[in-house]
Nucleic acid binder design. Structure first.
Lengths: 102, 102
DNA sequence: CTACTATATCAATATATATTGATATAGTAA
DNA sequence: TTACTATATCAATATATATTGATATAGTAG
């Protein structure tokens, strides 16, 4: 088993995958990811889109950032967020490994 | 956006995806899914593998069943669980849609 | 029937996580 | 400088979820 075996070091990899999955398995965060699919957005745009308090959006963005699901860049006052495709590709590979051979 | 748009019915699909993601984003449940990768297993085997109380394992299996991530069949006293590949494939497609075009 | 094994369910509790409200920081403009 | 806008952080609370302990069900064996 590539991603989890009771006795080897893949337990660490499993833990990482769980954190990643938890980060996207929240309604608001998944909405953010889907929203960013159409391109880079600043926080205030995400706030308007989700119709949530700004501090709550910042909190969710932090979680997505920490798990490297999104990346950000600062431009003047605004902070722009976008999807980190690399990490999502990684997740797809993981799920593929579940259906593939052991 | 295929899986979520503020104004259309895809919100329902998003909700379904979240339930699915939540079901697999738990350490013990993801371990179960990974364990089942090597083939059908009865509950008692899963209990031994995870080293968790039987009732807790049953509870996690119920969640995986409800989200159609695993299926089961009864044979005498034992209940055998296996991965429902169809649903995992669906999830892979979802993540692919995140990296693809809008 | 009784006793045993395998599994499931339920209520109570513990723990993790989301949300709210208040506040801080940092850039911009007057 | 002050005022304003955009974003982030923190503590408190609310809510969801995992875990435990007790019990129920259902098949099998004697």
């Amino acid at each position: 088993m590539k991603y989890f075996c009771k006795t080897n070091q893949s337990t660490k990899q499993l833990a990482e995958t769980i954190l990643f999955l938890k980060a996207v398995s929240d309604e608001n965060r998944l909405k953010i990811v889907c929203f960013l699919k159409s391109g880079e957005k600043c926080v205030c745009e995400i706030v308007k889109f989700l119709e949530l308090p700004q501090n709550l959006v910042s909190h969710h963005l932090k979680i997505l950032r920490e798990k490297n699901i999104v990346k950000n860049r600062k431009e003047g006052l605004k902070v722009y967020y976008s999807i980190n495709h690399k990490n999502i590709d990684k997740l797809i590979k993981f799920f593929n490994s579940l259906t593939g051979e052991c």
